[in-house]
């Protein structure tokens, strides 16, 4: 029979796991969004070398599993003298991952903005950067936001494997709990429910935010 008698004692560790997971997501969302915009700009740059380098990075990350990237960064890089602690390695792997998808999302968004808009800005004497930041990007965000927020949810779900390098996220706490309670199914059931709740709450929060700030006046 299912046994949840361990649950009341486990609330503190579960809360701390949720806090770590959400902390990771917040940091990665900020870093990943900024880098995605920078990467998309780099893919439109005039330097062929830069465009190619960003393209190669995107392909490399999109065609290898997140878990492999994480282990390579955490266990493999010390071979090159680069030692990162578990949390830094997790943030790096998650950010690299989100950015590889984010660049494509932002690029698609930028392509959806009519060329004339940028040209109009340039005709007003604005600089290239200025045109990008104040004319093109705000319009592109309407296309970008829904896809990017899906990507953030995906990263939240993928983040469960960072427990494997001993980041004390929600899944790590579940692993520890089940090794003490010997009730693995019940433990993972509760934690799966927590992830579902987090994903739902984040999705709703982002939708609400989008209506308020991005799609305002529509």
């Amino acid at each position: 029979m299912l046994d949840f008698s361990w649950l009341p004692d486990a609330l503190t560790v579960l809360a701390s796991g949720v806090a770590t997971t959400m902390g990771l997501i917040v940091v990665v969302t900020v870093l990943g969004t900024v880098l995605s915009i920078a990467g998309a700009a780099a893919r439109r740059s005039r330097s062929k070398g830069l465009r190619r380098a960003v393209g190669a990075y995107v392909e490399l990350v999109r065609n290898t599993p997140f878990l492999v990237q994480l282990f390579f960064i955490f266990f493999g890089l010390p071979g090159l003298g680069i030692r990162l602690n578990a949390v830094t390695a997790a943030i790096l792997a998650m950010t690299l991952n989100m950015t590889a998808y984010g660049i494509e999302v932002v690029r698609a968004g930028l392509e959806a903005v009519p060329k004339g808009q940028g040209e109009g800005g340039a005709a007003l004497g604005l600089s290239r950067t200025r045109v990008f930041l104040s004319v093109v990007l705000p319009q592109a965000l309407r296309v970008i936001f829904p896809a990017l927020s899906s990507q953030i949810i995906i990263i939240l779900l993928e983040s469960a494997v960072v427990s494997q390098i001993a980041v004390r996220d929600l899944t790590y706490e579940a692993d520890l709990l089940q090794s003490r309670t010997f009730r693995p199914f019940e433990t993972y059931l509760v934690v799966t429910g927590l992830y579902l709740g987090l994903a739902t709450a984040m999705r709703r929060g982002m939708e609400a935010g989008a209506h308020r700030w991005i799609f305002r006046g529509r």
Binding site: I153, L157, E158, S159, A160, V161, S163, T171, A174, P184, F185, Y188, L189, V191, T192, Y195, L196, A199, T200
Partner: peptide, 11 residues
């Protein structure tokens, strides 16, 4: 689509 694959596998 709303839960981690790792947890699905554990369950």
């Amino acid at each position: 689509q709303g839960t981690p694959l790792l947890l699905q596998l554990f369950l």
